[in-house]
Simulated scan of single mutants.
Amino acid sequence: MPIQLPINQLIPQPTYVPVVEDLIACLKSGLKDNLHSVYIYGSVANGNAIPNVSNLDVVLVTQRPLEAGQKSLFNSINWRFQKDFPFVKGLAVRTALVSEVASLAALFTWGFLLKQCCTNVYGEDLAECFGHYVPSWEIAKQWNMDIEQSAAILRREVALAEDAQSQLSAQRQLAKKLLRAAYGLVLHRTKRWLDDPLESGRAFLDYYPERQQTIERLGILLGQRVIPKRSVVGLLDDFAPWLEKEYQKTEFKIG
């Protein structure tokens, strides 16, 4: 197993170092020998997390499927975070088995996520199983061809938001998804990895300048101001079907 760097050398923002350390301690205690490795991605991994707004995004890899009691561990960790680290908006966990990740079928899904987007903070780094990734249409469509299903989920989260904070979180997630999906349409042209949603939107406009107003409005959703639900849903209902059609057109051209 490769030597694991100390957490404070992996997390750019010192405020989040104890958060990740506590997460690992809880997972080790709760999962024991079922725990294989832990990765973080998103704003905390990139060093641009916003206190009281950003989630801690985690990929958890286990040796065996999680049991019922082990699944409840995530609720316990969320509760701990609310008490000890209230500036962390929430814990968002993706789970996978070692056998699922370290396989050829996972090349453009788990392989891409771990290699390009994640920081390994505990255990064997499965990203080492995969070689260098070249920005391609294959990767873009793997992550964004489900835009119709994703839009339905995002729409529901906005509609069900009961307070300003939950609505702000929902509209930000919606904006991130749509901006990154938009950039996926041109990834094979730019051949650059971009994580920042706003930068992704600007790069998309180089090829689709007619959608400038949409991208500007999505940028507003990423801010700290709660936007009326009707406006958020209207933007989603306009842009998501357009994205879906563009992905289908591009798939037909490229294959």
Rank of each mutant, 00 (worst) to 15 (best):
Q171K: 07
Q171C: 10
Q171Y: 03
Q171A: 11
R172F: 15
R172D: 15
R172I: 13
Q173G: 07
Q173E: 15
Q173M: 02
Q173L: 06
Q173Y: 08
Q173V: 06
Q173D: 15
L174S: 11
L174R: 08
L174H: 09
K176I: 14
K177H: 13
K177F: 15
K177Y: 14
L178D: 02
L178G: 06
L178I: 03
L179K: 02
L179N: 06
L179V: 05
L179E: 11
R180Y: 01
R180M: 06
R180I: 06
A181M: 02
A181K: 08
A181G: 07
A182M: 10
A182N: 09
Y183I: 04
Y183F: 05
Y183D: 05
Y183P: 01
Y183H: 01
Y183Q: 01
G184Q: 00
G184M: 04
G184N: 03
L185E: 00
L185C: 00
L185R: 01
V186E: 03
L187D: 08
L187Y: 10
L187Q: 09
H188G: 06
H188R: 03
R189A: 12
R189Q: 10
R189T: 03
R189M: 12
R189I: 11
R189L: 14
R189G: 04
R189H: 13
R189W: 10
T190L: 13
T190R: 14
T190Q: 10
T190W: 15
K191E: 11
R192W: 05
R192T: 12
R192C: 05
R192L: 07
R192S: 13
W193Q: 09
W193I: 09
L194G: 08
L194C: 10
L194T: 03
L194V: 02
D195L: 00
D195I: 12
D195M: 01
D195T: 15
D195S: 03
D195P: 04
D195A: 01
D196L: 10
D196G: 07
D196R: 00
D196Y: 08
P197V: 12
P197H: 15
E199M: 00
E199F: 02
E199I: 01
E199L: 03
E199V: 00
S200Y: 04
G201Y: 07
G201E: 08
R202L: 14
R202Y: 12
R202I: 08
A203S: 10
A203P: 00
F204R: 13
F204G: 05
F204I: 07
F204H: 13
F204C: 06
